[in-house]
Design a protein around this nucleic acid. Structure first.
Lengths: 209, 209
DNA sequence: TGTACATCAGTGAACGCGCGTTCACTGATGTAC
DNA sequence: TGTACATCAGTGAACGCGCGTTCACTGATGTAC
């Protein structure tokens, strides 16, 4: 059956979404032009009407991931009125992103993106660094506002912040959803949060999960 | 030139080492039977004298990684006489392992191992869980000894502990060694350590890097 | 509103390539006598 | 110590397969008149 003719801009978007969906559900190894075409509902060669090569599809997917991550930062800013609330919100948004749409670790780690061209690796690094810088900025704002201990290095904290999600994310991915991902991250956040706040702030921790 | 005839047990070891070396240097995508054979110094078909398939080579490599990780735990126990010293030692050993021999994240994440057979994924999960359990044990020992705050969940702390290494490890891998991996981890450890110890313990943090 | 043509997305067959794997053969090593 | 044979690791050619990509062709959509 012939697919309905569709504008390139729309198809390009469908293709990127399809690619991310495949990565999310089956992993990077299963990302082939054929699989993407299948998901979109066209024949493999049709993909080449909208992207010049598989590489271009990957580039577009990477941009999408970058946009989602930075979009989450903006969203978290809106969600909370102080640094700690914003960080918490960002963490939850990140978890949701990984669970429902884009398994960020898979994308970041995937060899195809990773070991491919030097240029693309630089780009992935850039995305990572940008995200990290945004997190560090949230932390610095908290430090200036007196919500977060000012003697701690914001970059180190930003890295640790990402470290709250990553190991649970891996476990979650590997266990095929069995693992209580969000709960674990929340629990780690409680511990981390207690460490951020200046001495004298009422402790909110003590959960065991 | 014909390769010198070598006992299977030795060749099997060489093959696994070669595989890990290739993963470390070029990534999983470049791990082919041909590449392994090249590294070992034999012809591709010779590999099949020692392993039945590529899958078997991967399984053996995974066992090797598991052994290294658990070996590090045992080594860290010897290195330090108290929980905090042991945890620090384990962290440094882990960094060294990632830097010099086995980029654990690449192995754990690699699609080949990851999205391959369900059985192998279970096995990777197992390795991960075992390592985590060992770390949690070190923490619990510290809690019983009064070195680590007893109200914190040891499993959560173990996860956070791994989170100290992972994001820096990724950055390091992506930046091709430019990034100051060990320094970053040490800095994160200082912050984490201060969070572990009961109130009243002399603070050792305050570095900025 | 209707017709003629240009544009552009979809199709299916075919390609070259790399990779995992097989297999008959070679030749070195070790063992029995 | 020397000879005959079994064992076993190494070799190179060949295979089937999947994948990214190309290309001539089809047919739908939009535009000019």
């Amino acid at each position: 059956m012939r697919a309905t003719k569709t504008k390139t801009e729309l198809r390009q978007d469908q293709i990127v979404q399809a690619a991310l969906k495949i990565i999310a559900r089956q992993g990077f190894q299963h990302l082939s032009i054929a699989a993407v075409a299948d998901e979109v509902g066209v024949v493999p060669s049709a993909i080449y009407r909208h992207y010049g090569s598989k590489e271009e599809v990957l580039d577009a997917a990477l941009e999408q991931v970058s946009a989602r991550l930075l979009g989450n930062v903006a969203g978290a800013r809106r969600d909370g009125s102080n640094a700690l609330d914003r960080l918490r919100s960002l963490l939850l948004r990140h978890v949701e992103l990984v669970q429902n749409e884009v398994p960020v670790p898979r994308v970041v780690f995937s060899e195809a993106i990773f070991t491919g061209q030097k240029l693309r690796r630089r780009r992935v690094l850039q995305v990572f660094e940008d995200y990290l810088a945004q997190i560090a900025r949230l932390i610095e704002e908290g430090q200036r506002a007196g919500e977060i201990r000012p003697e701690l290095c914001s970059r180190t904290l930003a890295m640790m912040f990402l470290g709250l999600v990553q190991p649970p994310a891996i476990l979650w991915l590997m266990s095929e959803g069995e693992y209580r991902f969000a709960e674990q991250v929340k629990s780690a956040w409680a511990v981390f949060r207690a460490m951020l706040v200046p001495a004298g702030t009422p402790p909110a921790i003590g959960f065991r999960n």
